[in-house]
Write a protein that binds this DNA or RNA. Structure first.
Lengths: 207, 207
DNA sequence: CTGACAAGTAACAATCCGGTAACAAAAAAG
DNA sequence: CTTTTTTGTTACCGGATTGTTACTTGTCAG
């Protein structure tokens, strides 16, 4: 997993895994069924109860009934051992894409723009663009939903954390402008950060 | 599949399957790799190129390399034969849940027209038609009741949220016109958005 | 054939939305 | 505590969107 650019943690038991989930910010869980102590199905249950994180079972128990009970407890995929690494990676990527946390590739790129989410840095070609924390947050929110139009209400919530706000519309408008001034070659003719009138803004894939 | 309450079609070859896809409104494809004529991977490729329908491979070819190439062509899942019915159903359900299809279809299509309700985008063949928010709302309301005649009172309520309104009739009339100008090849000879004099309007299935 | 009414069409006007700049408040740096 | 940077607020402009009005066309009953 690390080779593919993901952060990865491992736990020796179900309990330890659940503890990790609460201390770290985790996007996906790969889980065996045969575990010391608490069994995998129970762990999956307890995960699905409290959070919406995709779970993949990876188990030597290859009976159909095992697979079925795994999927029925809400697991998102079930891979039988022995498994192929490449297949696992592909299935992980697919799941992350579905659940929208997909662009955890730590760098989001479109055209000459590059966002390194791990370091919170933005580059235009090789040059770093210095963004203020707010500007960066806004760009990341847009980047994580590349090509999707996002309304100012959602942006306000995702980037600022405000549910509603008097001048929410203005705040977004102005900060979009500030972002454009920094990331667009010509801020009045945006190429990356586009407006969909009446709907919102989107960061578009270019080229 | 039918026992589970799904509509199901089957095709004896890739070509036939692709033809079915265009004539019927399909939410998910289950595909073998070994097919007479065009092979399954090619079929999957061609599906993924033009539409965003989930594809599950179901194949006797159980080598890891087969699974990997299947997933890499963009398939959403790969099940090895022999397979268990219950597992297949569970995986189908899961996919339909992810892609949001199933309950309310995420794309409505008639003739050369396609409405992507998840992104609020409308296409004529491959070309996107830019609609204003109001135009889109109206079209979606009509599209969700394909072939049903809807009165201006209902349209007013569904699209505008007004219970009654002085110039309600006019507002609908004018916006229907605006929609037609954008979606009809010849706005004065509508093919999609038809009038039922005295009753209302409907979005008709074409072909 | 004709009048009445529904629907089509076009032009106009009000409103809403986004772009922009300048300014003020708040936060961070020195 | 002062300076600088960042963030939020306000105001105004221009244009797209939407609603309004007026007029034309088409359909159907009598």
């Amino acid at each position: 997993m690390k080779d593919e650019g993901y952060r990865a943690y491992s736990a020796g038991s179900g309990e330890e895994g659940l503890r990790l989930l609460h201390s770290e910010s985790v996007d996906l869980v790969i889980l065996d069924i045969n575990l010391p102590g608490m069994d995998g199905l129970k762990v999956c249950d307890s995960i699905k109860e409290t959070m919406q994180i995709p779970v993949i079972f990876l188990s030597a128990r290859d009976q159909d009934s095992d697979v079925i009970s795994g999927l029925e407890t809400g697991a998102d995929d079930y891979i039988r051992k022995p498994f192929n690494h490449r297949e696992l990676i592909l299935r992980v990527k697919k799941l992350l894409r579905y659940t929208g946390n997909g662009i955890h590739e730590s760098t989001i790129r479109t055209g000459r723009l590059r966002i390194r989410t791990d370091r919170e840095e933005v580059y235009f070609d090789k040059e770093e663009i210095k963004l203020t924390p707010m500007e960066y947050k806004l760009l990341e929110v847009l980047g994580r939903k590349l090509d999707w139009v996002i309304s100012w209400q959602i942006l306000l919530k995702e980037a600022w954390g405000y549910e509603d706000w008097e001048g929410g519309r203005e705040i977004v408008k102005v900060n979009i402008r500030r972002l454009r001034v920094k990331i667009e070659p010509d801020p009045s003719q945006p190429v990356y950060l586009l407006t969909e009138r009446g709907r919102g803004y989107k960061l578009a894939t270019v080229e």
